[in-house]
Nucleic acid binder design. Sequence first.
DNA 1: ATTATTTTTGAATCAATATTCATTAAAGAT
DNA 2: ATCTTTAATGAATATTGATTCAAAAATAAT
Lengths: 194, 194
Amino acid sequence: MRLKEGHKEKDIIEAAIKVFAEFGYHNAKISTIAKKANVATGSVYVYYKNKEDILFNIFDTLWQDLFEKLRIVSDNSALLPDEKVELMVDMVFEVFSGNPSLAVVFVNEQNNIIRLGEYRFNDYYEKFLDFAEAVLKEGIAKGVFRKEIDLNVFRSFIFGAIRYLLHVWAEDPKKIGIKKISSTVKNLLLHGIM
Amino acid sequence: MRLKEGHKEKDIIEAAIKVFAEFGYHNAKISTIAKKANVATGSVYVYYKNKEDILFNIFDTLWQDLFEKLRIVSDNSALLPDEKVELMVDMVFEVFSGNPSLAVVFVNEQNNIIRLGEYRFNDYYEKFLDFAEAVLKEGIAKGVFRKEIDLNVFRSFIFGAIRYLLHVWAEDPKKIGIKKISSTVKNLLLHGIM
DNA sequence: ATTATTTTTGAATCAATATTCATTAAAGAT
DNA sequence: ATCTTTAATGAATATTGATTCAAAAATAAT
């Protein structure tokens, strides 16, 4: 019997990330993705159930990667809370640093994906914010962070700022270096502007 | 001759804001908007050229409002830089405070609208960030803000954090009060978490 | 009350593209 | 070398929903 060539599934995902980033999910055509992946339109449906499924696949893989790396930082009990915050910020930028298109998709399609009714993505993301919140809580308990910061607001504040900067960086990766961005973010987060 | 009833244009926009917020621009149907506005589908096209045009209209009106209010703060030379930052944050939350759906549309469709090729929206938003940057620069010059903050990163940092919190608030306005959010944002922005 | 003018309507049209599937091609087994 | 099985193809199909437009309704003028 004949075997699959073995690289098409990955080719399609990689093409899809680029096409979704360029046109946005709703304006991305399956035929464009197929062309970019050097496969026939129909082949896309051999590997993925439908268009949504491609997007879900991208997000599932990405979140898995994020959690894996987040846990390494989070579980390291030798780190001080402020060091944890810094490493978490670094980690997020690192995950995307080799793939600006993925960053664009992550930022732009987050809402779409939740609207499509797949609630696991909401959970991923709540769980991710829980980690951030836990670090803040730990820092407050240890007296390193100020206790008047509202936890609920903090978790969204940090995520929102990072998300947006990721997007700014990804739209033109040469404009501001990712290192410059992450160091400024860490600085602003810990000390503010004053 | 017959006169227009006079309220349909506005009814349609208001319905569209709600429908876009609920389903997202691409999944929003003209027929749903028409139904919510109590007009016929065809009537939508009497007042607006097409679907895009409705979205553009929403954003044009919104940006105009934002700039008008931003300028009042920005032009007030009696204010200290940190007071300006605080008032700008307050201002943004105030603009949306009566209309969570508008906040959702603003945050979610920002990218769409730029992709649709109407570059004025990019300009609006760059201009808005220029204001933020100018205040930081002024603060640094006056020795109130730390000079090691990168201006380019700062402008996106603040915008990203606010944008996202706006969205969090708008998805469930009762969960965290908008006052609580804006005061925490101001605090974090000026002083950080440490 | 009739006419002229403009608004409003919503069913019909039209276009776009996601998805299917009959066909063809390739790989491995015998 | 032929056969069997599965992969790959892309043109045809189906669906969805934006947009149009001919007809109907409303208002104001005479």
